[in-house]
């Protein structure tokens, strides 16, 4: 059961977050200009990570594997 949980865990955010990453790579391949490379994608990364942390914490709690 624990293994299932772990696998689900893995896929839940693999799909969610890898899609996001892939978008960003593609987005770099079509240079949208100086601004996006110099700033736009950086903002995206920062926001993405904070959201990721939040969601991951929620998932941990939901499945009772959070610390404390």
């Amino acid at each position: 059961m624990f293994i299932h949980l772990a696998i689900w865990f893995l896929f839940a955010y693999l799909i969610q977050w890898f899609a996001n990453d892939l978008n960003q790579f593609r987005f770099l391949e079509f240079p949208v200009g100086f601004y996006m490379a110099a700033q736009g994608s950086l903002y995206a990364f920062v926001i993405q990570l904070f959201v990721f942390v939040k969601q991951q914490d929620a998932i941990d709690r939901e499945f009772g594997v959070a610390e404390e």
Binding site: W17, D21, Q24, L28, A37, S41, F45
Partner: peptide, 24 residues
């Protein structure tokens, strides 16, 4: 010029990988 912005993007985006795949 522009090609060097790859360092800016790569050195920040790498942390997405660190957070998702490695650090925890």
């Amino acid at each position: 010029g522009h090609p060097y912005l790859a360092f800016v993007v790569g050195w920040t985006g790498g942390y997405v990988l660190v957070a998702i795949l490695m650090a925890p």
